[in-house]
Design a protein around this nucleic acid. Structure first.
Lengths: 341, 341
DNA sequence: ATATAAATTTAACGCGCGATAAATTTTGGG
DNA sequence: CCCAAAATTTATCGCGCGTTAAATTTATAT
């Protein structure tokens, strides 16, 4: 590393002995220049750690290499994990991802889209808030920026949707629960944050009907993204009110289930699938913490490896112009048997 | 909203009937223009939703309004929460925060600093990886960009450090545990990720010595950021090997404790502080999930409201030139009594 | 060696805004 | 109504790079 400070591409090009337009071309796509040229640039790059000014680069280019990643609630480790997964894939593809969290608020989600516009992103991967999203604002955004929605579908907005086959989730776990014990009640929030919950309820109803059992749905109040607290507080209420008609409870999602496990603990119900247990509890998602509840939570694992991979691939295809019609992809979940049910 | 598309500040200025330099001044600081002028601009702003081109804005300004926020591992909800808190404070102060996670990897942390440089941030708030951080790289970065370190201290790098009084944490909980039952063993990773763990061990030793008890430290192997899994796996090993000399275990942090609770469950140990329980378990941090373990985890709550507030305030002071000498601030924790100990 | 295609160089403009200096207008106090 | 101070306008550069067209060099095939 020589001490010389390089201020711009002009000076860097001078060091390499190559003209600036060619150097510029290299940074745009290293494969677009001759190998000998590439090697000379890269040799100089090792000695001077020059980087093109990111602001100057982007201002005069209609399409940047920026990619926006928007999740509804980053304090949920599920979204943190999937965001990380997506982030890595974007970097590997030579893009610069920027991560945003809507923190459960409509106003923030809208503001994020505003900010994103000014970044002129090549594309955006977005998990919308869901029910409380400003659909009109998102629709408008999708019209201007190639956007792939994931996790939570929003009408047919964006160039594609990638998520999970939620009805299949519920049907799978209902089938398992019925095979191994009493048919489950379904525990959920009355006003769920996103449509996935509705599809899971449908799946539950369908599976129960198919197996010839009478369904019981326990809906509880609660707003916002503190699902564990809602599961705990309203779980206690529902247990005390005797709203669960069988000794098996299927929760709409894992975070609700984690809170419900606490509710069981605090009301003295022993959770598990062995003799001497009072209640079986199952979730859906395979949340990172589900492995560590007591007892560990039986659940349906989202294939978020597949979701993130397909979402990213779809976006990059669309960016490269292989735009077709809107397409929705749903990945199946897998049963994860643990000790809670 | 009129249909006219405004492409740049020139055109927007024309619409308002005000000159471009004045409009520019407004965007730099709305208070710097006359009220009547401000009102005219804001009226036009409502009709045309024009925003200055962010790239053009920043390229020719030595100091931007960007602020970098770097956390070591975003999939840990603790960091997600504190990042969110810091983010909001930055926005409220008129800055544009960008969030990065090192994902537990040195190479990524270094790369993030490289990227941050090219964003010309006004300042950076960084929770370093700790032990595996590339200290030289961070030192170099701190020399160029005003940086406040938080959560995990790294020598005396940066303009300030803001974190928790870790020895106090351990002393507080040791005192509590000794008052209410048998003195605790200390459960930790052999090679902790950051210096906080060492300070907590010191606090434990000091408190035990002060109270006249013989300390027992159980160190277990394990690398990376999957603390829960390490706590579970190595917890089982340590329990089976009879390494815990008393029926009370103080874990170095909550995530380890969450895993250790699972270990207790899987080895048949009943956790709690009531008659009939086999073991008491306590953590440190008040992790968002600690409220929902079974039993809920007794722990020491980090004051991350105070940490994030003071970190942001310190940074903005430094940015405004009130740079003094390096200063470290440590906030005390509060005992959160729950049912695990 | 020669023709042809491919890569590079040269030259020059534009992007949208920051920044500045000098000229002009507006404001507010007496 | 006048004047000094404050705010705004006018005019003009510069930032660092993208982009283009024409001229030139280099590589590849015949």
């Amino acid at each position: 590393m020589t001490g010389s400070k390089i201020r711009n591409m002009e000076q860097f090009a001078a060091v390499t002995g190559i003209s600036r337009p060619t150097v510029s071309k290299y940074f745009h796509n290293p494969q677009s220049v001759r190998q000998s040229t590439r090697e000379r640039i890269e040799r100089a790059l090792e000695q001077h750690d020059y980087r093109p000014n990111i602001f100057a680069m982007n201002q005069n280019r209609k399409l940047t290499k920026n990619v926006g990643i928007v999740v509804p609630y980053l304090a949920d480790p599920f979204f943190a994990e999937i965001a990380r997964n997506i982030e890595e894939r974007c970097i590997a593809a030579g893009y610069t991802p920027t991560l945003y969290s809507s923190h459960g608020e409509q106003s923030l989600e809208v503001e994020i889209l505003r900010s994103l516009r000014s970044l002129k992103p090549a594309g955006v991967l977005m998990a919308p808030l869901g029910r409380i999203s400003d659909k009109a604002a998102i629709k408008k955004f999708c019209a201007d920026v190639p956007t792939v929605l994931f996790d939570s579908s929003l009408q047919d907005l964006g160039i594609a949707f990638v998520g999970s086959d939620n009805p299949q989730f519920s049907m799978l776990i209902v089938d398992y629960l019925c095979r191994t014990g009493t048919p489950p009640c379904f525990f959920e929030m009355k006003t769920p944050t996103n449509p996935n919950a509705n599809k899971r309820r449908q799946g539950y109803l369908q599976a129960m009907s198919h197996l010839g059992h009478k369904p019981t749905i326990v809906q509880v109040p609660g707003e916002g993204w503190h699902f564990e607290e809602i599961g705990r507080r309203e779980g206690i209420n529902a247990i005390k009110a005797g709203r669960f008609t069988t000794d098996t409870v299927l929760c709409s999602n894992d975070r609700l289930a984690i809170g419900f496990l606490t509710a069981c603990f605090e009301t003295g119900l022993k959770v598990g699938r062995t003799a001497g247990c009072d209640i079986r509890v199952a979730g859906q998602d395979d949340h990172p913490f589900s492995r560590f509840t007591c007892p560990p939570l039986t659940t349906i694992a989202q294939d978020y490896e597949a979701v993130s991979r397909h979402a990213v691939e779809t976006l990059f295809k669309a960016i490269q112009g292989d735009v077709t019609t809107h397409e929705a992809t749903y990945f199946e979940g897998k049963l994860v048997m643990r000790d809670s049910a």
